[in-house]
Nucleic acid binder design. Structure first.
Lengths: 233, 233
DNA sequence: GAGGGTCTCGTACAGTGTTCGAGTTCACTC
DNA sequence: GAGTGAACTCGAACACTGTACGAGACCCTC
């Protein structure tokens, strides 16, 4: 089997016309509504078509396949991020705002976590944000490959931090699980490690949103400090 | 609709007998073979059954459903991690080895990236590794919630760092994409951002495995430095 | 009116996870 | 050796999935 050409929504011209009937925008918006309300697995082409008052197969005129639809919704939500221009903010504030913006998007759309491992992030919104971060780090003084490394360190931390944060949310939302029984499950699963349980209990004793926020701020500060240290030496 | 009880392989007794015929171990091993060879989407119950010379529905005696199977394979691969005991290694070496071990597992089983957002990591192997990391950070001097925060920072970085690393591998492997056309796609997608393209090209000019390794080492050093800084003050 | 692009959609197909219930195999007891 | 019950297998069926195909509908331009 010989290698095929790479395909993506972003590498081919979209079909365009006089915008009679369905629109790509409508479709993407409706898809996000379903995803937000019912989760990743609940999005089917038939359901999406029905919500738009259209047949399922009509969607295939505007979108090549379901993966392309995912590429579109994926990039669309990154458009909700607002990154400050590093010209006015310092590099550290830019990194800080970038990270918090990313995190907020993931928390608002938990199904993103299930998509992260599947899609290359080369849509316009993702690239716009990436460029601002790059610019900030360049102004900070990073050059060459270290410019990439520094940016990757920040986004890596945000991705990895937000994912476990939403996994339980996902599980609870999609399968309608009881919160108490989920805590109990952790306790029985980790029965061999009393110290881990103790940690989980102290963690659970605090207001979840607040403690996660602190968790995130702590780690982000570590990353930014580490970057700063590499600048001065 | 009232909330259901949380369900997981790790919270119920496995069915056990005299091990006549199929075994959970066999099933999990075969599933990992398929996943490694053909990717996440290629694993179906029928295909898995066929590989074991059994009917698809026979699997349901040993495993409640496909999600449970995923929980099992997920935890199984974390068992490939070998984390040094922090009693002999210092906390920093422990963190370093933990991170590199995690990363290696993800690179060896790229399909993991597609699972990360879906499963709570409460299997025995995941917990064993988590406990060692916790112990190391405790010895380092972290206490209370900061013990959690520090561990979360490390795992967050590893997850988030390995995911983008693996996404392209996934896309290439599952859909048999041509490498050259994938680079080209990035270039056309980012046409508006010449600086980003320049960065991507320099990145691509180096041996991929080596530059990714450096990328990882750079970010991990940042995180560990940041943690160290929080210890001394 | 004719032609042709844009767009919708019913039908159909191959494939999915999973339930059900009937059937088989096997270790054990009387 | 016969009988019992648990452990285990599996074919058929169900409701669903993504999507290819081709027939038709709409609308603008000549």
């Amino acid at each position: 089997m010989t290698a095929k050409q790479f395909a993506s929504v972003w590498t081919r011209e979209p079909r365009q016309g006089k915008a009679q009937g369905l629109t790509r925008d409508q479709i993407v918006r409706a898809a996000i509504e379903i995803l937000d309300a019912e989760g990743l697995d609940a999005l089917s082409m038939r359901k999406l078509g029905a919500r738009l008052g259209a047949g399922a197969t009509s969607l295939y005129w505007h979108v090549a396949n379901k993966d392309e639809l995912f590429e579109l919704v994926y990039d669309e939500v990154w458009g909700e991020m607002s990154v400050p221009d590093p010209d006015s903010a310092g590099w550290r504030d830019t990194g800080w705002a970038f990270a918090h913006g990313m995190r907020k998007v993931i928390l608002r759309h938990p199904w993103l976590a299930g998509l992260l491992g599947k899609l290359p992030a080369i849509g316009p919104n993702a690239l716009r944000a990436a460029e601002l971060l790059r610019k900030g780090l360049h102004q900070a003084g990073f050059r060459g490959l270290e410019e990439d490394y520094a940016g990757a360190a920040i986004t890596a931390f945000v991705f990895g931090s937000a994912i476990p944060e939403v996994v339980w949310t996902n599980a609870a939302a999609e399968k309608n699980y009881d919160a108490e029984s989920m805590r109990e499950a952790v306790k029985t699963a980790a029965a061999d490690y009393p110290d881990l349980i103790a940690r989980a209990e102290e963690y659970a004793a605090h207001e979840p949103a607040a403690v996660r926020e602190m968790n995130f701020a702590f780690g982000l500060a570590c990353v930014l400090d580490g970057l700063e240290r590499r600048l001065v030496t």
